[in-house]
Design a protein around this nucleic acid. Structure first.
Length: 286
DNA sequence: ATACAGGTCTTAA
DNA sequence: TTAAGACCTGTA
C-alpha cells in the first residue's frame, strides 16, 4: 500500500545501502526495491534512495525527526572528506582505498540514546548477526507490535522499565549471562534515577565518556559508540577489534585523529564500512 | 574441537 | 598503570 512520501535532500552524496551495512544500525530491514524498513525507539519509517543526494521517507508526519535521524543538516561531512583527501594526497594508501570505495557516502545516524546504550552493550565480545538476532528477539518479547501508517508492521524498542528483570532477559536468544546482567542493572538504575540520561545528553564528549564508563558493563569502546551514535559526538573514535587491526597494520599503532579534528568518528565509520564490505584483507582476514 | 565475534571486569603485580 | 584470564553463546 503506497502513501505519500517526503524527500530529504542532502548537500553531499549518501547511500542507504552502504549505511545499512556500516554496522551502526542493527534493526534496519531490507524490503526489496532498494527500500528499507527503519524502526527507531518507538518510531518507524520506510526509506528509499531517489538519487545520490535525495532519499524518500514514508513517515510524513515526523519529517523533522527523520531529517535529524539521517543527520541531514550535519555540517561535518564535507570537512571530513577534505581532511581525508588531504591525507590521501599526503600518501595515506589506506584512506585512498576507503575513499576509492566511496565510503564517504555513509553518514553517522543520530539514533535514540537508550536504544544505542543497550544495543552496544549487547555488541561487546559478540558478532553482528547474533547482535541483530538478540536485539530483534528483545524487541519482539519486551517491545510493542505496531502497524505504521503505510501498513508495515514493526516492533518498538523496549523502555527501561521493561528490561529490569534479569530472569526474563535470560530467556533471550544469545544475550548471554553477563550482558544480561549489565542491561538489567542499567535499566534498574535508569528507572530509579541513579543514571540520568537527560544529564548525560547535555554533557560534552569528555564528560559523557567519563559518566558512561562509570556504568557497570560500559568500557572504552562501548562508551565511545554511545557518544558517537547516541549523543552526536562526532569526535568520538571507537576502537574495536577491526579498527585496532587497521590501526596496527596500516598506521603503526596510532591513528592520526589529530588530522580529523571534530570528525574522527565519521572517518571511523567510513573505515568500518570499508572493512565490513571489501577491506578485510587489510585487517588480516579474507 | 577450538577460535572468534564492533569488550569489560576482576585480580595481581 | 598495565597484563593476564574469565566470561555467555552461536557459528564456522
Amino acid at each position: 500500500m503506497e502513501t505519500n512520501e517526503h524527500n530529504i535532500i542532502f548537500d553531499h552524496a549518501i547511500d542507504l545501502e552502504k549505511i545499512a551495512v556500516s554496522g551502526q544500525c542493527f534493526r534496519w530491514k531490507k524490503l526489496g526495491d532498494g527500500c528499507f524498513g527503519i524502526p527507531s525507539a518507538g518510531a518507524y519509517t520506510r526509506a528509499r534512495q531517489i538519487n545520490p543526494f535525495v532519499i524518500a521517507i514514508t513517515n510524513t508526519r515526523y519529517t523533522t525527526y527523520w531529517e535529524n535521524y539521517f543527520d541531514r543538516a550535519g555540517q561535518l561531512y564535507n570537512k571530513a572528506l577534505s581532511q581525508a583527501e588531504k591525507m590521501d594526497q599526503a600518501g595515506d594508501q589506506f584512506i585512498k582505498k576507503v575513499l576509492g570505495a566511496a565510503a564517504q557516502e555513509v553518514v553517522v545516524l543520530n539514533q535514540e540514546l537508550w536504544e544505542i546504550m543497550v544495543s552496544f552493550m549487547i555488541s561487546q565480545n559478540n558478532n553482528i548477526p547474533r547482535i541483530k538476532k538478540t536485539i530483534d528477539a528483545m524487541c519482539e518479547y519486551f517491545g510493542e507490535r505496531r502497524t505504521a501508517v503505510n501498513g508495515d508492521e514493526y516492533t518498538t524498542f523496549p523502555d527501561p522499565e521493561k528490561l529490569t528483570d534479569l530472569k526474563a532477559l535470560r530467556g533471550l536468544q544469545g544475550l548471554g549471562y553477563y550482558r544480561g546482567k549489565y542491561i538489567a542493572t542499567l535499566a534498574q538504575n535508569v528507572v530509579s534515577g541513579k543514571v540520568n540520561l537527560i544529564k548525560l545528553a547535555a554533557m560534552d564528549y569528555a564528560d559523557a565518556r567519563t559518566y558512561l564508563k562509570s556504568i557497570y558493563g560500559i568500557g572504552d569502546k562501548v562508551a565511545d559508540c554511545i557518544c558517537l551514535y547516541g549523543l552526536g559526538h562526532k569526535e568520538s573514535f571507537p576502537i574495536d577489534t577491526w579498527i585496532r587491526k587497521v590501526v596496527t597494520d596500516e598506521y603503526g599503532g596510532k591513528f592520526p585523529v589529530e588530522n580529523y579534528a571534530g570528525t574522527a568518528g565519521i572517518v571511523q565509520q567510513w573505515i568500518f564500512y570499508y572493512i565490513q564490505t571489501r577491506g578485510r584483507e587489510h585487517a588480516g582476514k579474507i
